[in-house]
């Protein structure tokens, strides 16, 4: 079977800082990582490859240095990596991104073998829209199953997959036909550490690199800024609250402090006492 995992290289947002004066994002020196949610999808693809046989290809669209993430995915155990890179892709929103990725996926299918499952991450930690997976699925007419907590069976013979999808208030157990696009929930599996031989192989592996034309994209007006219906008009810092918290003085004992705090709460919001009485008595 052929599994393709779409991964995005993102800035490690735990280390992102906003410049206090200019309000711009300070990306310099911020390390990049594979979008953490994509790792659960990568792991799931590797598990099913190990179980039913086949290959795992990883795909990313981004600047040339996004190949770092691809190489990382190879060390974790992916078999092949494809980098989609072209200046035409700069400024893509989710519609343009899903257009470019779909073209590359089609080309991957033609070049390296028919794709059974396209895996995407649940969402990214930078754009955080969760829109690219559904976009790719729609463009390639793949069955779309998002927020998957477990894949129970991948059946190559009858071309089906059985899985569990998180929904509001419960879990849907679904069966669908391949090819499908699946996004995995975080924590649905434990991401492996790569083996030594994978690391050695990854260091030497050649990363396939395609520009728009090589990926089979004829119409570059569908890509990048030009192909993006959304436009970011302004970026600004959230306005800070005018005043800081009013601090209640600490009393001689915790009990005295508690009384003082409750008084302060009721002074700020007199109606809250009625609400509390109702709640506390279990209404």
């Amino acid at each position: 079977m052929h599994f393709v995992v779409c991964i995005k290289q993102v800035p490690d947002s735990a280390q992102i800082r906003v410049h206090p004066v200019t309000n711009t994002i300070m990306r310099q020196g911020v390390p990049t990582i594979i979008n953490p949610y994509d790792l659960f999808s990568l792991e799931e693809a590797l598990r099913w490859r190990d179980k039913v046989g086949g290959e795992v290809t990883v795909l990313t669209m981004g600047p040339p240095m996004a190949s770092d993430s691809l190489r990382k995915a190879l060390t974790i155990g992916a078999d092949r990596a494809v980098l989609l890179t072209d200046r035409f892709f700069a400024g893509s929103d989710t519609l343009a991104t899903s257009f470019a990725l779909s073209a590359a996926l089609k080309k991957i299918g033609e070049t390296f073998g028919k794709i059974d499952i396209v895996f995407c991450g649940k969402q990214t930690i930078d754009g955080d829209t969760a829109q690219v997976g559904p976009g790719v699925a729609k463009r390639l007419s793949l069955e779309q199953i998002t927020y998957v907590s477990a894949i129970n069976e991948v059946n190559g013979e009858d071309g089906t997959v059985t899985l569990e999808r998180r929904s509001e208030g419960g879990v849907q157990v679904l069966k669908t036909n391949l090819p499908a696009m699946i996004t995995m929930l975080e924590g649905s599996n434990t991401v492996r550490r790569g083996r030594i031989d994978d690391a050695l192989r990854a260091a030497r592996a050649e990363i396939v690199s395609w520009n728009a034309k090589e990926a089979g994209i004829e119409d570059v007006t569908m890509c990048g800024l030009r192909g993006s219906p959304t436009v970011v008009k302004k970026v600004f810092a959230p306005s800070p609250r005018a005043e800081k918290a009013a601090l209640v003085e600490v009393g001689a004992t915790p009990a005295a402090s508690a009384e003082a705090l409750i008084e302060a709460v009721l002074a700020k919001s007199p109606k809250i006492e009625d609400d509390l009485i109702k709640l506390a008595s279990g209404f």
Binding site: I16, V18, T230, V231, V235, F236, P238
Partner: peptide, 15 residues
């Protein structure tokens, strides 16, 4: 919100 809420951005779908 973007970048985990540290910034906000206003987005349009113009055409």
């Amino acid at each position: 919100p973007t970048f985990g809420g540290s910034l906000l951005c206003t987005i349009y779908t113009l055409n």
